[in-house]
Simulated scan of single mutants.
Amino acid sequence: MIYSIFKNLVSIRNGSRILPTCAKSVYFSRIISLFVVRYESGIAGKDQSFSISYLINTVGLSPQSALSVSKKIHFETSEQPDTVISFLMNHSFSKPQIRSIIQKWPASLLCNPEKTLLPKLQFFYSKRISGVRLLRVLSSNPDVLKRSLDNRIVPNFNAFKEVTRCNDEQVFLAYKNCSNVLWCDFGTKIAPKLAILKECGVPESTVMAEVVDHPRAFAVNHDNFRITVEEVKKLGFNPSKHNFLTALQAFLQISKSSREKKFNNLKKWGWSNEVVLSAFEKYPRFMMFSEQKITAVMSYFVHTMGWKASDIANRPVLLSYSLERRIIPRLCYSKSTEKEFLRRFVIPYEDPYLLKLYEQKLKTLKK
């Protein structure tokens, strides 16, 4: 009966729930949302109902997120979840960070924090990794906290550091960009790909810098990696130049069908196959931008600024610039960095109004 009452209080418009005027109270709307979630989930069982309530009221999840998380874990008392949350708070994780961990790793609420979490945190503390960065990275990607410290984290941390000759902070930043760094077998998953690059002539120092800065490129299938390396070589990229690795990263990150779509999109602007490949060779990174971004920048330069499409092909780095923050506010001086642009065109005039006008223009475009 009570489910019918609450369900009737909520009208549906275009697939969205619309709460009545009386539900403007945050507390009341939360109650209604919780009952709707329970109703739509087929009236959750007692344990799941308690889990949902806890996830909403204590963790701060939305009713929908709470329902999703509760399907992966069940608890009938708050004793264990309270222990985990207290542990994380005592180690300086903020409420939003704790919420992020629980959403990404629901089972964390039921772990023994002293056995599962503490040894890993102590390991990272021992590496003198910035506390702020440590908490931010672990909350956005808690995957490593699930792994064995002795069998995965320590040996992979040490292997990555030894091979790349980077410092502890850089190893952790590599993990931030690709969680495989600290839990996959470095010797069988990453090392063979480093060997492939060295064999084809990429300088060792460049290879090591690349695996630290862009480790995700080394997490792909081994055969696919080798085939893509050969494909980039056939396009004429010189392995001894840095743009070889940028082109490789672009091809590994984007499927062949997506690349073809982008090539065809650029051909609509009058770029021939040769022009597209020439632009790609000059600035391979533009291939990683979305079609929407490429089209928006091309359209502005050609239709608004009156440039020729070939002008952008000759300087494809222009495709990387932000329309709102760089191209439109500065017009034809978009190649300058923010500091250089201010030094050349704003600060010399010692006019506070000019600087204020420029800052207001940036804020308007960001909205």
Rank of each mutant, 00 (worst) to 15 (best):
I5R: 11
I5Y: 10
N8W: 10
R13M: 08
R13S: 13
N14Y: 04
N14C: 00
R17H: 11
I18H: 08
I18N: 06
P20Q: 02
P20C: 10
T21V: 09
C22L: 14
A23Q: 02
A23I: 04
A23C: 12
A23M: 06
A23L: 02
K24W: 12
S25F: 10
S25R: 04
F28G: 03
R30K: 14
I31V: 15
I31K: 08
I31T: 11
S33H: 06
L34Y: 13
V36H: 05
V36L: 14
V37K: 03
V37G: 06
V37F: 00
Y39C: 03
S41L: 13
S41M: 12
S41E: 14
G42P: 01
G42L: 06
I43R: 15
A44K: 05
A44C: 12
A44Q: 08
K46E: 15
K46M: 13
Q48P: 01
S49Q: 08
S49A: 15
F50W: 05
S51K: 03
S51V: 07
S51G: 15
S51M: 12
I52Y: 01
S53A: 15
S53K: 14
S53R: 13
S53Y: 13
I56M: 15
I56K: 01
I56Y: 03
N57I: 06
T58H: 05
V59W: 04
V59Q: 02
G60F: 01
L61E: 04
S62V: 10
S62T: 14
A66I: 01
L67E: 12
S68E: 11
S68W: 04
S68N: 11
V69D: 03
K71C: 05
I73Q: 04
H74V: 06
H74D: 04
F75D: 03
E76W: 06
E76P: 00
T77I: 01
Q80W: 05
P81I: 03
T83N: 13
V84F: 01
I85L: 10
S86I: 13
F87I: 09
F87D: 08
L88V: 09
M89I: 12
N90S: 12
S92F: 14
S92M: 13
F93R: 05
S94A: 07
